[in-house]
Design a binder for these strands. Structure first.
Lengths: 196, 196
DNA sequence: TCGGCTTTACCGACCGTTCGGTAGAGAAAT
DNA sequence: ATTTCTCTACCGAACGGTCGGTAAAGCCGA
């Protein structure tokens, strides 16, 4: 492992590596030694930078949420038309997951149960905001008479599921480019809920 | 806990309870004491019926696979028309998951990494057979010119993801009947891939 | 009395975490 | 220029606790 000068770089490096390992093996199955080995430090060494294992997971989830807020929700909020907004959500989030696996994928796993009640609710609330944003977009679609005869809550949850599931199998499928997968994926999401 | 007479009943009971607990907390986060308490025995007591923790997970996953084989794949194989077959797969699997959470839900989680290489491949192979069955159905759909302009592999993986994700949020949503959710869900799956 | 369940008691391994200590780069003092 | 001090970065070792798993003794119906 190359030497790292500034402390922030090292801490950031630990977060990124830990996100990678935890997403691949799961939170409970990942030991602090696993993370330490992946980083290139000793188990005791990384405690110089982090508060603890649970806090590490919390920071990673918050980081993933920040990415979704900035790269998905914020740009989508600029779009008025519900149909185009939904397409933007699906395309941007899918792209983010495929090209930057790590932290974004961990968003909705059941590893959340490992967090303390306070941290758990903090993350859960942010997830709920995102789900509500999708649901409101679908309601706007319904107001235009372009939503299929389906419950918006069920549709929103299903769409979010489709997005989160993307990061689970793409890494093993090496014969398709991310762009191709995203294109087909967005096509499916849109036709699943929009009348045609 | 009521007394159970026959040994097979007790073993079956342990499998069912363990599936419930493991699906809720995750494999690694579930201790043998958790399962023992839920069953109503001591940790040592349940070792009279099972070989070990990893084998318990393997048996549960195999049991879930058997349910899918019997209640989803087998009936769907009787249907010739690709569109009706796909609808049957989505409806039957979704119904199974919603009304019998437990073992079926665990099918495609990343808890699979906790299995030994041999067990892992055994389960993985059965998953691959199921995924291939869905993909072949989609190819049959394409032969009739009824499939959207999407890659069958991407579509099959996405559909399987939609199905598996169902069991993650329905339990928390108590305001809808399973039938209503299944109806909307099947509607979305079908329109996502079938030309209309 | 006998044999199948179930228990108590316990093991070695590993967990997350902490602590004492140290190598080495500067800053400060001489 | 040399010594001394200080601070960050990191490590080895060990802590209390929990893990999956086991041996052996006890309960109880036949």
């Amino acid at each position: 492992m190359l030497p790292v000068r500034r402390k922030e770089d090292r801490a950031d490096h630990i977060y990124r590596v830990a996100a990678e390992v935890m997403c691949q093996k799961g939170y409970e199955a990942t030991s602090m030694n696993d993370i330490a080995d992946a980083v290139g430090l000793t188990k005791a060494g990384i405690y110089h930078y982090i508060r603890g294992k649970e806090d590490l997971l919390f920071q990673i989830m918050g980081f993933g949420m920040d990415m979704v807020d900035e790269d998905v929700i914020a740009p989508a909020k600029e779009i008025e038309d519900p149909e185009e907004r939904l397409r933007a959500i699906a395309r941007r989030h899918a792209t983010r997951i495929l090209e930057a696996g790590g932290a974004v994928t961990i968003l909705l796993t059941d590893d959340m149960h490992a967090l303390s009640p306070a941290h758990s609710r903090a993350i859960f609330d942010r997830q709920r905001v995102y789900l509500q944003f999708i649901k409101e977009t679908l309601v706007g679609l319904a107001a235009q008479g372009k939503l299929r005869d389906i419950n918006p809550s069920v549709a929103a949850a299903t769409i979010l599921g489709m997005i989160c599931w993307l990061g689970r199998w793409y890494n093993t499928n090496g014969r398709m480019t991310a762009e191709q997968v995203v294109r087909d994926f967005v096509e499916m999401v849109m036709h699943a809920v929009v009348l045609s």
